[in-house]
Write a protein that binds this DNA or RNA. Structure first.
Lengths: 232, 232
DNA sequence: CTTTACTATACAACTATACAACTTTTAATT
DNA sequence: AATTAAAAGTTGTATAGTTGTATAGTAAAG
């Protein structure tokens, strides 16, 4: 087998072992050619294969960069799961894990600005991108304000559509908090990632045009596949 | 007598007369074929005989290189690459293939007697004798104990000198293990030998006067050109 | 008739070298 | 501290030269 192909395989192995991480630079062509004991053009040929596969791309004068295939999930004033994904020509899907109606906790009541005696609706969903589960969301919604929410959501599988039916034509983020967590075994299983894989966790409130909170929610994103793009 | 054999004898005579010196290139096949007034394939046949004898080695795209016969590499209590070669009136040279800082593997930590959480410095080098690459070494050194090792080594290109600068005036072998391996295509290219050529592999630990391990390393020698001389 | 030695030609794979275009780093200057 | 200029380093491109390999053909020897 030709040398350039073997080097290609060697580099591909390093890439899959995460020796070179998405967004980072590879060693320069000169360094690589010395490492493998071949001419620079031979290295270039190996690299070309990886560029053709979309794994690498190069910038003249700068270097060779590992392509970041992570989905860019936009977080701005209006965050819409399905629309976010459709905009990038991917296929979204939402499945419901569970729902529950119970009394609000103190924090939930505070964030939804409701009385803590009131009941809330809890919905947990998994969001899939091109059939790969990558997003888990836990929503808290006032059951007093939206008693039919779950019935409608179950059919629509969309927060935006459900709220529209309930007369809320627009809503937007009051705030968003981003933290990092490690996946436990249950989450890892749900999100098709490894145990201890880093997860991005967002905690946020969506409110309507009258600034009244609609939902107090938390969303976990698989860090290996999704990056959050914050907008202003 | 056939033409190719006469050319072979003529070339062999030139080689023994040191007309072409170890590490240097022969004239290209095209030049030789014109010189002898024969087709290139005839020259190739003559050269093949010399390659089979291990006297010549060819590198596609580069040329045909003169090799030397077996070098006696001494392995005793103190093994010093450059000194070993200088003692036999040959010219040593060291080039760096790559370096890497990462966490120690279990075996590395055990052999260096360090905590497996500590970071190690990995250095891969090629050792040349009279300009012929014949020795490849992979070293593992505690990055915690010698944080500046690579910077110094990069300039000195000598373990002995680097350690002296770092305050280690002497070091010696704790043990040496010798095994045999076959060259894969990448190693073959680096070491100017054929694929599947036998390599002598030594695995060893160098320690300081206080018996504390300094490096846990492995060295590959091209079996066709180097023989190990064990001393006590 | 088959084998061997040699020629002829063509192309693929790899090296060597040089320079252009561009970016990043370094140093000097203000 | 900020700006600017020079230097060094990176990828892109072009050209020529080298060995490896495949195919086809010719001539001589057994």
């Amino acid at each position: 087998m030709s040398i350039y192909y073997q080097i290609y395989e060697s580099l591909k192995k390093d890439l899959s072992n995460n020796l070179y991480k998405p967004g980072e630079k590879l060693p320069s062509e000169n360094v690589l050619s010395k490492r493998f004991g071949v001419n620079r053009h031979t290295i270039r040929r190996s690299l070309q294969l990886l560029k053709d596969e979309g794994i690498l791309f190069s910038k003249r004068g700068s270097g060779i960069i590992v392509h970041d295939n992570r989905f860019k999930y936009k977080i701005g004033k209006r965050v819409r799961f399905s629309q976010n994904i459709l905009n990038e020509n991917y296929v979204p899907e939402t499945t419901i894990l569970r729902s529950e109606i119970r009394k609000a906790s103190k924090i939930e009541a505070k964030n939804l600005e409701i009385n803590s005696k009131h009941e809330i609706l809890l919905i947990e969903t998994i969001g899939k991108i091109n059939n790969v589960p990558s997003i888990k969301t836990k929503r808290i919604i006032s059951n007093k304000r939206f008693p039919d929410f779950f019935d409608i959501f179950q059919k629509q599988l969309s927060i935006t559509k459900t709220l529209k039916i309930l007369g809320v034509n627009d809503f937007f983020r009051k705030n968003t908090l981003v933290t990092a967590e490690q996946a436990d075994s249950i989450q890892a299983n749900l999100l098709h990632c490894k145990i201890n894989s880093p997860l991005l966790k967002t905690t946020y409130i969506n409110q309507d045009l009258n600034l009244i909170p609609i939902e107090y929610s938390q969303t976990w994103f698989v860090g290996e596949r999704i990056q959050l793009a914050l907008e202003n």
